[in-house]
């Protein structure tokens, strides 16, 4: 299954994804996907290096699938991390 590297950004804790240019981005759509083990290992190594240099916390590879053009993490927990709470973030409560 395709994998993507997810973490929380140190400064604000927001969920971020590792992008092709080595930056961390907030949208999973612009995260770098890998399809083989060797590439996944390289991605994780890059993530751990960024954890070491205090850019992100807890980088980890997650499985993703593409459904209707949208990247969806396979595990619900990660899907909620990637796409936000499943309830309205309602400011009028």
């Amino acid at each position: 299954m395709a994998k993507i590297l997810i973490a929380n950004r140190l400064t604000d804790g927001l969920v971020v994804f590792y992008a092709v240019d080595g930056n961390w981005v907030e949208s999973i759509a612009t995260g770098q996907m890998t399809f083989d083990d060797a590439a996944a290992d390289r991605l994780l190594a890059a993530g751990l290096a960024d954890e070491h240099s205090n850019r992100v916390i807890d980088p980890r590879l997650i499985d993703v699938t593409k459904t209707a053009g949208k990247l969806i993490p396979a595990v619900l927990r990660e899907a909620i991390r990637a796409h936000g709470p499943t309830i309205a973030v309602d400011r009028t409560l």
Partner: peptide, 10 residues
């Protein structure tokens, strides 16, 4: 100091 790291943010 009550600051957790949760799924989406602190």
């Amino acid at each position: 100091n009550g600051l957790y790291l949760q799924l989406h943010a602190y």
